[in-house]
Amino acid sequence: MNRIIILLSLLINFIDADNRSDQVITRQGQVSFFSYTSVENIEAKNNQVLSIIDFSKNEIAISMLMNAFVFKKSLMHEHFNESYIESDLYPKATFQGNIIDFDPLAEGIQTKMVKGTLTIRDIAKEVEIKTSIENNNGTYLITGDFEVVVKDFDIKIPPILAPNIAKIISIKFRFEYQPYEQ
């Protein structure tokens, strides 16, 4: 009887461990954004983006703190958080979606579409992003870029500053995943 319990618990542990190895995580993902206009170029980078992928369903989630973006000018960081993103009210931006037709076991680089919901300032937008996914022995590197329309997320820009801020912001990301340990 005892043996069976041990065997069972081992089996359960094994299944559990197997489940776990299906997930990979990064805690130092990089997201940068760029606003290019003839008046002013603005760029910012967040090095503390969290992301997790569950390969059993090819699902991906990304979460980041808006006030972790670093700007060239410190005052720009304050304006970004206080006047545009209002990070007091909406501290995080998130993404949840699926990697379409992805084979996690194949080594090397695959170019796949990621489809899902991008949420900034509590406003959700369906997006489709072309990404490059590199499987290097169980660690995955996902990179890509896409664009967002400032107006889609109800970010107010006063008319006097309209020439300084691009209507479309380009976003770059780079996530290096490690196996997820509980």
Binding site: R27, A61, E82, G97
Partner: peptide, 29 residues
Amino acid sequence: MSMNAQDLLDKLEKEYPNTPQYEIATFKG
């Protein structure tokens, strides 16, 4: 969106490091 993806976001919620967050722009000027 499936329930699982929401679970993944909840999982990430617990992964945030415990770094203190300070108020900014109390008066701005």
